[in-house]
Write a protein that binds this DNA or RNA. Structure first.
Lengths: 271, 271
DNA sequence: CTTGAGAACTTCCCTATATAAGTGTATAAT
DNA sequence: ATTATACACTTATATAGGGAAGTTCTCAAG
């Protein structure tokens, strides 16, 4: 404990090595100055010149060293703060964050590629009919038990192989008759990448791990027993009324989520 | 198609309702002007005054309406861009993004709470010994087959109930003898929330769904068959050499990941 | 009537500078 | 010895203005 704190105290002193580097800002480059500076600082962290717990050179020091205005330094540091690499404390300094496994985030975007290349992906509607809501569905969609809902079952295939099984209950709206075309690819595509007109305001999504039921295994052509990912989703419109509740189910051996923590050097600059 | 594009075209005209509101920036407030402005714009989106596809008022308009400088408006909009609510296109305008399910991110942070309240959480080391690396381990840790590694098996309990089973292979470093205390709670705590001194630079994490093996089910006191989440992790030091490879396995009925897409009104302002 | 080039305009983007506010330390008074 | 104060140093916020990129309109040539 005491040893560790001494180590940190030593490391907290501003490291001037970053300033002694010969590289500087290329004013002719298309890459803005603040982005270049952020890159230099990230490079310093990646190479170990700046380590977790270390204090970055002060804004004034960076201004003088790289001959840019304080506002430019400010943006560069804000960028790193937003990206979660450093923390800035007013009156104290800016420090490099340690990597934490808890900071890992898994993006559903990985699945999105599946929907986008319509070359290999096809959507087949297995079933689409109007059903009366049972108590479970009614509670989720905040309607009365027995009211009409649209029940849809879809199967997504890539190169003919089934990958995702989708079941969904939709609010039945007499003013908005179901267009047959809506049931095909487009609806799911729009749901995922948000293209086109949308009436969704927000949604809740749960990720669970399950074992395929007999029906699911049969539809997904999977041997049993087979582990699976299940994405439960509940979407709301602009009046905060639920309009859709359903699940995506996919075989675990076809789906995998990867992520990285710490420093990625090919980060897109934006702020 | 043509109908939809007409609808979008109409909606794309700058919506002046945002400007006609009576509310304005409170200069006496502790909340900075840019954050207030960002809040006002988000509120407009949440209430439906600004809808997906709509164009925000131009920066100049916002300047005049709320009597702030261009740079302040700039920061507010940058904030919304970073948070993924709007997209800015140079020369065209800034537009409200539609909600996309693909934008959903699941945070491992939810697990972190488990490690933090040491009141109810205990870590028990089931096994810790030095083993020779087999080919699979050697390839992952980028060492020669047969080299020494530290193999650790841990069990995490909350309120006495087993929730996570952890297996890990560590590079054996003669210079860094294994302290018994390191094997207990602290090591995992630091791994997750990044407190204290760390030698980790970055790591890759995979999330998979599996079915518990006999051994795992027995240790986690789970009935069979039981679905489970599996987090495979591979960590690197500052020389980009692997130092640790392992898995966390947890019962699916004890773990669930939730997230939201679209507008959350209690967002922390920062930039 | 159609088409293409160019100017004018609107839009977001970037930098420079000044001022405020918080933190820690050294110093002086009690 | 303890407390209060002044100062140096940090990040945070705001203002002003110039520049770059895209869109739209105009107008002349084919």
């Amino acid at each position: 404990m005491s040893l560790a704190s001494i180590g940190v105290a030593m490391a907290q002193k501003p490291n001037s090595q970053v300033l002694d580097q010969t590289i500087s800002i290329d004013r002719a480059s298309y890459e803005p100055a603040y982005a270049q500076l952020a890159g230099i600082l990230r490079q310093s962290m990646a190479t170990g010149i700046l380590r977790p717990g270390n204090q970055l050179p002060s804004e004034a020091q960076l201004c003088e060293r790289y001959d840019v205005s304080p506002m430019t330094v400010r943006r560069a540091i804000n960028l790193l703060v937003d990206q979660g690499f450093v923390v800035a404390e007013q009156g104290r300094g800016t420090f490099v964050k340690p990597v934490a496994m808890g900071a890992a985030t898994f993006q559903l975007r990985d699945l999105q590629t599946l929907f986008n290349d319509s070359e290999h992906t096809t959507v087949h509607v297995l079933e689409a009919r109007i059903v009366d809501a049972d108590e479970r569905v009614a509670r989720k969609l905040e309607i009365s038990s027995g009211e009409r809902t649209i029940y849809i079952r879809r199967l997504l295939r890539t190169d003919g192989l089934p990958v995702l099984y989708h079941r969904e209950y939709l609010i039945y709206d007499p003013l908005r008759p179901i267009v047959e075309a809506e049931l095909e690819v487009t609806a799911l595509q729009r749901l995922f990448n948000g293209t086109g007109e949308t009436i969704l305001k927000h949604g809740d999504i749960n990720l669970e791990a399950t074992i395929l039921t007999d029906e699911e295994a049969k539809i997904l052509q999977a041997p049993q027993p087979m582990a699976a990912f299940c994405f439960e989703h509940l979407f709301y419109d602009f009046d905060d009324k639920p309009i859709s509740w359903g699940w995506f189910i996919g075989r675990a051996d076809c789906l995998k989520f990867s992520t990285q923590v710490g420093l990625l050097m090919d980060r897109k600059e934006r702020s």
